[in-house]
Design a protein around this nucleic acid. Structure first.
Lengths: 231, 231
DNA sequence: GACGCGCTGATTGTTGACAATAACCAGAAA
DNA sequence: TTTCTGGTTATTGTCAACAATCAGCGCGTC
């Protein structure tokens, strides 16, 4: 387990640019976390005065943070009426998954072309580790989801395309996490998803770009179809 | 020509949400335009005081606009050192085109599934109109480029996926336009690109989603390969 | 009773002044 | 000459007060 941790760490640690300094940046990250973790539920109105007091800053930097959050699609701002945490409808979620399916397919293709041996074994280790945890607590979807996100994050990074990684991690994954409870979990789904991950990892190990892309696309399209079935 | 204009107008007009009111929004749009049109060249430093005076606002709304521009990738901001117009390296451009190739492929597939008869004829008209202009001024790449962007915008809209359209138009096309001069234009390229567009339009008319996706992806990958050839 | 009107309260948008940080430059020491 | 150091200055980051806008509500009229 320990060597696994050492291996997988490199796949997940993010650069964390230049020790964020300004208040606006810090507040941005705090609100982002609060939204993604569900502390600020969708539709919640975010009053400036309240938030400013809560985070101990003035309204100036706070407004900058809100503008940045709007750019990431986590809040919607209607002029002179304040900002609210975004609320995605059914159609929006499907659109999100369609884009993800394509983009993560691309990430897989690129990753297959560029992955190193050590990275491949690290990814394998990540999956095994994740499988152990899942095995212990079958049923509790939390770790499954958590581990699943780790895997997708790793793929995004392994694509070694900064733009693609940024797009996936910053713009798409936050929203996916926010509305993960809306994607219905049929009984056998976690097991199936884990198997998908295993086969994607195998394809990457064999540097089969075309197969890896196809598997990833289908993996996400499956979740999308499940979504559509819920009407 | 006139009926063509009437037809094509619907493909290109954008909603233009709620008569932008706040100063920050207006300044955002103005700076965006200035950057995309090349008035503010890449690497140019954008001092807050100067810009504020130029656009007749205070530094407050201006900073909000800059944060928004950063979110769209048009400027880079390094804390305590100001913002500069983004400058994409060769590798960055290739990454951009890789993402575009996949995403516009998706847009084409969706468009083929959802396009109406009248929309199909309108797209055809747009291409014909564009072909006429190009025919008149063979060689001047400006109109070619301009028309080309119109076409890609239209496809993005015809995908009828709001998220995809937003992603393409807001985040990707601006950067593509900004660095269009960097993509070398081999002698026969404009003609080839126009033919590509024609064939994509045909595929859409036949509702051949798979073909339309493939053609669009190759169309953009061709530009990407040309880029890679320039080392 | 329903509709329109103006008032009031709260919230957002904006401003100019203040504090803090980092780049710049001059000068001295090695 | 090079390099380190210190102050200087321009620029960014932050704040609190002011102006503008919108939502809700009571009143009067039809």
């Amino acid at each position: 387990m320990v060597p696994d941790d050492r291996l997988t760490a490199a796949l997940l640690t993010q650069p964390q640019a230049t020790e964020h300094k300004t208040h606006a940046d810090r507040v941005f990250e705090e609100i982002e976390r609060a939204i993604v973790t569900g502390q600020f539920a969708p539709e919640t109105r975010l009053g400036e005065e309240t938030l400013a007091e809560r985070f101990g800053v003035s309204r100036g930097p706070l407004r900058e943070a809100l503008r940045q959050l709007e750019g990431r699609g986590l809040v919607v701002r209607l002029p002179h009426a304040g900002v609210r945490v975004v609320s995605l409808g059914h159609a929006d979620l499907i659109e999100l998954y369609e884009v993800r399916a394509n983009l993560e397919g691309l990430a897989c293709r690129l990753a297959a072309q560029r992955i190193s041996d050590s990275e491949a074994t690290a990814l394998e280790a990540l999956l095994r580790q994740h499988g152990d945890e899942e095995g212990v607590r079958t049923g509790t979807a939390y770790f499954q989801e958590h581990g699943s996100f780790d895997f997708h994050f790793a793929i995004a990074r392994l694509s070694k395309s900064r733009r693609l990684e940024k797009l996936l991690c910053d713009d798409l994954y936050s929203l996916t996490r926010l509305f993960r409870f809306r994607t219905g979990h049929k009984p056998g789904r976690p097991r199936q998803a884990y198997d998908d991950h295993l086969r994607i990892c195998e394809a990457l190990g064999r540097r089969d770009a075309e197969l890896a892309e196809l598997l990833m696309r289908r993996h996400i399209e499956a979740a999308c179809k499940e979504l559509q079935a819920m009407t």
